[in-house]
């Protein structure tokens, strides 16, 4: 049971990252790989601030802002200095590696004896369920701390998702979506599409920074290596989500992205439990994304080939 709870908590945290990736890749159609650096940035900012006695919430806010700035830099490199989108992402991601080391002062910062954002929820639970630091859940005894964390993340993720959805339906939000669809049309409607790209990248990376901050809190440490391959995980989640619920409206796509992330985390947890070598995890994920990108077309082609001779017979 704690496996499930853990998977869901991480899934919820990474949903924020997936939503960020969804905004840049799907809404803006911008291949932004700053993400790998931004998630670490969020984690390191939150870690160093909390170690230095900042409150968890202000630290998280600062981490989110730091993510936004990183995304903004990528956007400006691309729009103002006409650097290719992929390259501007790589530049910022590379720079962030050093910046993260600078922020943390070393490659790993443990978060011991610091406050947790789940504390208020934990107190509430304790009040409700009485004494002890465990809780009966569906016949399983689970640590109360874990449940509190899960609930907190649920509230945050759901709230953020709802905010994003509401935003995408505003004037500004529709302009942002249109920017990814058709920049020419957007300009003809009087929208500065470059400003929209920067704005979108800020938003996307803010989400990633937030995700990194929460991840650091949940794991109890920030590590300079923790961002590697995150973008692929995000993509994998989006693809699963699209397969699950489609992408007709922003609301559906966002729900799908969250569900995809949760499912993906669950699958990984199960695989690890069955003995998958954690070192192979990234390879497996990459293979999965590759298959998801290529297979649908192949299946269609195959279907066409099978059908054709059949028709001739009748």
């Amino acid at each position: 049971m704690s496996l499930v709870i853990g998977a869901f908590t991480i899934g919820l945290i990474l949903s924020l990252l997936s939503m960020g990736v969804w905004i840049s890749f799907r809404v803006l159609r911008y291949t932004d790989i700053t993400v790998d650096g931004t998630i670490t940035l969020g984690a390191s900012v939150v870690a160093i601030l909390m170690v230095n006695g900042w409150s968890p919430w202000t630290s998280i806010l600062m981490a989110t802002l730091a993510g936004a700035v990183a995304g903004g830099v990528t956007g400006v490199l691309h729009t103002r200095f006409k650097i290719q989108e992929l390259l501007s992402g790589i530049l910022v991601m590379t720079a962030l590696y050093s910046i993260n080391l600078r922020v943390m002062g070393r490659s790993n910062v443990p978060l011991l004896n610091v406050g947790s954002i789940a504390a208020p929820v934990a107190r509430l639970l304790q009040g409700a369920a009485g004494e002890g630091d465990t809780l009966m859940l569906l016949g399983w005894r689970v640590p109360l701390q874990d449940v509190a964390m899960l609930l907190t993340m649920l509230v945050i993720t759901a709230g953020v998702a709802w905010l994003i959805k509401a935003f995408l339906l505003t004037h500004l939000g529709t302009a942002l979506r249109a920017t990814g669809e058709n920049a020419q049309m957007v300009r003809a409607q009087g929208i500065n599409h470059q400003r929209m790209q920067v704005l979108g990248l800020c938003g996307a990376n803010a989400l990633v920074g937030l995700s990194g901050a929460l991840l650091a809190q949940y794991q109890g440490f920030a590590d300079v290596q923790m961002g590697i391959g995150m973008i692929v995980w995000g993509l994998a989640s989006i693809i699963i989500g699209e397969a699950l619920v489609g992408k007709l409206t922003p609301g559906l796509a966002l729900t799908g992205t969250i569900m995809g992330t949760l499912l993906f985390r669950l699958l990984i947890a199960i695989a690890l439990r069955w003995g998958l070598n954690p070192n192979d995890l990234k390879l497996v994920t990459a293979l999965f994304v590759f298959a998801a990108l290529v297979l649908p077309d192949r299946i269609k082609m195959l279907g066409g080939m099978l059908k054709r001779p059949g028709r001739r017979e009748c």
Binding site: A166, L169, T170, L172, G173, T174
Partner: peptide, 8 residues
């Protein structure tokens, strides 16, 4: 025109 945060 300017585009704000009102529902479109």
């Amino acid at each position: 025109l300017s585009r704000g945060l009102r529902p479109a």
